[in-house]
């Protein structure tokens, strides 16, 4: 593999290989929990935490884990950190934990996290793996934050629970519903493609 500057590993996750907008990975929590910016941020942070910790361990153990059981090992490692995140949220932020519901445990099967282990952490050195995980996590969080902000502002007229729209604004209920997530995500992906195309030409 051609060596890139290490910082590239971080930056690529933010835009060029953004897990949500470009790789279209991990869409299940993306679509399900982004009703409010708070949820989106919490989900992003939880996923980032799991991603970084698992990447750390997987990268550390990459020469130890036999090839045949690598997926099983990754899943156990990921599950451990997901459980940690889940319990922490339940213990310290019960409200968020309740509204995220089963989607925190479902991070275990989030393809973005498993994908990064398989595609990157298991093949790269510790430092790069951590940077990659951080970049991907940040990209994921950012995308979720934008998505959930749009949905919360239009769907509930608030942002992080604060009233920000004018008084006569009538909320677009559909934005709080699953179709709103698809619509917003579709528009975001379209916008990202449009910008990329313009950058190329």
């Amino acid at each position: 593999m051609k060596e890139k500057p290490a910082i590239q590993e971080f930056i690529k996750g933010l835009w060029d290989e953004n897990p949500v907008l470009v790789q279209l990975l991990g869409l299940c929590p993306t679509l399900a929990v982004t009703v409010s910016a708070e949820n989106g941020l919490a989900m992003g942070v939880a996923a980032t935490f799991v991603l970084v910790c698992s990447s750390f361990l997987v990268s550390l153990l990459r020469n130890v884990i036999p090839n045949q059981v690598r997926i099983a090992s990754y899943i156990v490692i990921i599950a451990t950190f997901v459980t940690i995140a889940d319990r922490f949220l339940a213990a310290y932020t019960p409200e968020i934990s309740k509204s995220l519901g089963p989607f925190i445990p479902l991070i275990i099967v989030n393809c973005m996290i498993l994908g990064r282990q398989e595609a990157f952490a298991s093949k790269n050195k510790l430092g790069r793996s951590l940077l990659d995980a951080l970049g991907m996590g940040a990209g994921f969080t950012l995308a979720l934050l934008v998505l959930s902000s749009v949905r919360e502002v239009l769907g509930s007229g608030t942002w992080f629970g604060m009233d920000i729209m004018w008084a006569s604004f009538s909320t677009w209920k559909v934005m709080s519903l699953p179709p709103g997530a698809f619509l917003t995500l579709g528009c975001m992906i379209a916008a990202a493609n449009w910008i990329n195309r313009r950058r190329q030409t």
């Binding site: 009538s170 909320t171 677009w172 209920k173 559909v174 934005m175 519903l177 179709p179």
Partner: peptide
């Protein structure tokens, strides 16, 4: 359908 989902009361 969008309006129905967005402004079901109105």
């Amino acid at each position: 359908a969008f309006l129905q989902a967005s402004f079901p009361v109105k």
